[in-house]
Design a protein around this nucleic acid. Structure first.
Lengths: 419, 419
DNA sequence: ATAAGTTTGTGCGAGGTACAAACTAACTGC
DNA sequence: GCAGTTAGTTTGTACCTCGCACAAACTTAT
């Protein structure tokens, strides 16, 4: 499979914008905004506005961005010519009179994005259209404690199968992986439940194999980006994604940007402390949030309280049993959601994002669990006047959010929305 | 081609109380960077580079920013003509040969900045030069539970005394205040220990009285800015300022910007939870960080352990007594610093800033306390390979950091460094 | 049916910004 | 004294956004 180079104005690698940013990262701490970077920035922002708001006409975009209509035309026209965007049919204007607006949106036939979700033991690959549609899903399994070469073979085979279904060369490949990831250097640091991945420079391997831009990030951050592009975080400037399950993690969208700490760290919330000298955690410390709000805790408590089938307890089942009248389930659900709430409370006190999207096990508990968590958070947080905290779930879709997020990572990294 | 108004793949439901989300979607936070704004941005960044790196020649600045020398000349020349910057004497070049560079820096005779530090019961006002020098300090006291008019009278009198010593009109006035501040609207929300300030629209009052730009922010954030402009945070892109004393607070510098949450909140770390169902806090909740790492806890423990003069115990005295051989002091110091460390650990796990500047009581403990805290943090954090965590103190100067920070706030808003 | 009004989208020139090339100034070393 | 090097300036060019004018397309009133 051989891929052509990409259009030069936005999604390619060698635009002045990316060179500018690279120079900034390399050299000093100061980066001036150059003329050519400006164009790339504004192009990126127009695209972002399209993602955030859905199909919009040039005039709408101009109003949204507070710029002249002609500016939007200038930005948008080359993209239409390159078939990245398409002009829709004139929609009946909601205002009376006037020339009807022609909405613009992403071309469904534009190049897609490769996306990979890497969890202990399983690989999922797919293609994501710019419109968010998921196609050509391929799944495979690998031995978490096996041989590195075997893993790479499975990975390339899976990805090749998926990418071969693309009509044109994808813009790039995004990988969402469990564990601790160094997204700056594109390597997997450690995955507790899959030692075979430890230290794997996956970005370099895939880049070499497929000759495409490759981006990797950790699972919660992919969920965040998935929420932001195509989920409840759409259009929001500040929110957090929180994942609960066997482990806990989170990621933040701050001031319109994905927060990515030094070397792509941050958001390792599972091991923040909510109980000094509390229960022993997998990490060797005591009283981590993970010791009271993850599935192992829930299983242990379910067993202690004599609930049926404690080994396979989930939030979803807890909600079901509580709805069916089990007092024990109701009580445990309350304690579970309260424990989850503590981590969100600490986030709220720290960053005050006001908006949280839940994934993983508690998301399986649906609206009921979300509302319980919201109530606990409200009780436990020092509220400011006029402040409203929103807790949403986005748990459906078998990893589709993470896959869309992985795709979104590629898009974000190539749009260079950062100034 | 026809588009659906709302894309069909937006998964996830929203909790009933999420008016903010709808507002966010509608409001459209998209802003393009205009050509004219570009100049202002770059001017600001050049000035920031001067602050961060000290006097620098045009050529140095150009290298630092990765731009053409002519660009720097174009930016800098008007500022020299405006007497904001001055050209220094040709310094002996460190490289051999070539025309010697003329370093640029802030004109000591340029307009200064007004700064006010507002703590329960006391007002401190001063002038801050662009070089960081502090002049014309005026102090006054007010009744924390008294009359609002009386407070305003004291405030205007103090500020008038200070401002009258300025040769030229200052660029503006920056206020750093204890308590909960709405920096967006320029009002003091609540100050627990000074009810007279509750709900005071201080920015509006001072703006009207002095006809100058006025900025207000809460105390920890002023410390942060003070650290950033003139302290250990100089030139850093990511760090946190942490204040301990009667209360705990913090503020963050993230990716080269002061983090200012919605309505200027965030950083209210004192009431993050480190001990679920722990001791009762002033705020009415249980187990806040403030219950184990602030002065009230230290006094209580000192009394319990039989240390001398427990009512006036401070970290500084604890260090002194421990150095003099008191085992009890040594043990309490260890526990105190460990408790402080927990809050920093949670910050580190969340944001991974890697660099923390201590203020307030623990800063009084100097290097000894900082090193103890650092050791505890290192033990309690899940470390990533190659990661180093730095803990520094900046406790000297009787509020000078906060005053410089207050001045820095004006500068930031005046220079429009934030995009 | 016709005219007036409204909104969308597009040329064109103006204004501003950064960049590249070429130039002068000043200093070092042989 | 001359070559080499670095700093800062001048000049022309490319690029971007903005405001204005104008055609296109649709609604509404007469």
């Amino acid at each position: 499979m051989k891929f052509e180079s990409q259009p030069s104005y936005s999604l390619g690698q060698r635009t002045p914008a990316s060179r500018e940013v690279a120079a900034g990262e390399n050299g000093g701490n100061v980066t001036l905004v150059s003329q050519s970077a400006l164009g790339a920035i504004n192009r990126g922002r127009v695209l972002q506005a399209l993602y955030d708001n859905g199909p919009k006409s040039r005039a709408d975009l101009a109003r949204l961005a507070g710029v002249n209509r002609t500016t939007i035309t200038g930005i948008v026209q080359p993209m239409i010519e390159d078939q990245l965007l398409v002009e829709g049919d004139a929609s009946p204007s909601d205002v009376k009179g006037g020339k009807p607006a022609r909405p613009l949106y992403f071309n469904p036939d534009a190049p897609m994005l490769g996306a990979v979700l890497l969890l202990p033991g399983t690989i999922q690959a797919c293609l994501v259209a710019l419109t968010g549609e998921i196609k050509a899903v391929t799944k495979a399994e690998f031995d978490p404690v096996g041989d590195t070469k075997a893993f790479i073979a499975v990975m390339t085979k899976t990805l090749t199968a998926t990418l071969s279904e693309a009509q044109q060369a994808p813009f790039g490949i995004g990988v969402a992986s469990a564990g601790m990831i160094d997204s700056d250097n594109g390597t997997i640091l450690t995955v507790n439940l899959a030692p075979v991945l430890t230290g794997l420079p996956l970005v370099a391997i895939l880049q070499k194999r497929f000759s495409l831009p490759v981006v990797i990030d950790h699972h919660p951050r992919a969920l965040l980006v998935g929420d932001r592009w195509f989920g409840p975080g759409r259009g929001q400037q500040n929110f957090a994604a929180v994942y609960t399950g066997e482990v806990l993690g989170g990621a933040f969208f701050i001031d319109g940007k994905v927060y990515r700490g030094l070397a792509g760290s941050g958001g390792e919330l599972g091991h923040s402390v909510v109980q000094i000298d509390g229960a022993l955690c997998n990490c060797g410390k005591h009283g981590c949030w993970e010791t009271v709000a993850a599935l192992p805790w829930l299983r242990k408590e379910a067993a202690r309280m004599g609930l049926p089938h404690p080994k396979s307890i989930t939030c979803a089942r807890l909600v079901k049993e509580a709805d069916e009248g089990s007092n024990a389930a109701d009580e445990l659900l309350d304690r579970y959601t309260r424990n989850v709430a503590f981590g969100i409370v600490n986030l709220q006190q720290t960053l005050c994002l006001n908006s949280y999207v839940l994934h993983g096990d508690v998301a399986g508990g649906g609206m009921r669990a979300a509302e319980l968590i919201r109530q606990h958070v409200e009780q436990l947080v020092v509220k400011r006047p006029g402040q409203e905290i929103s807790i949403t779930v986005n748990g459906v879709g078998e990893g589709h959010t993470a896959l869309r997020g992985a795709a979104g990572l590629v898009l974000s990294s190539h749009l260079k929305l950062v100034i």
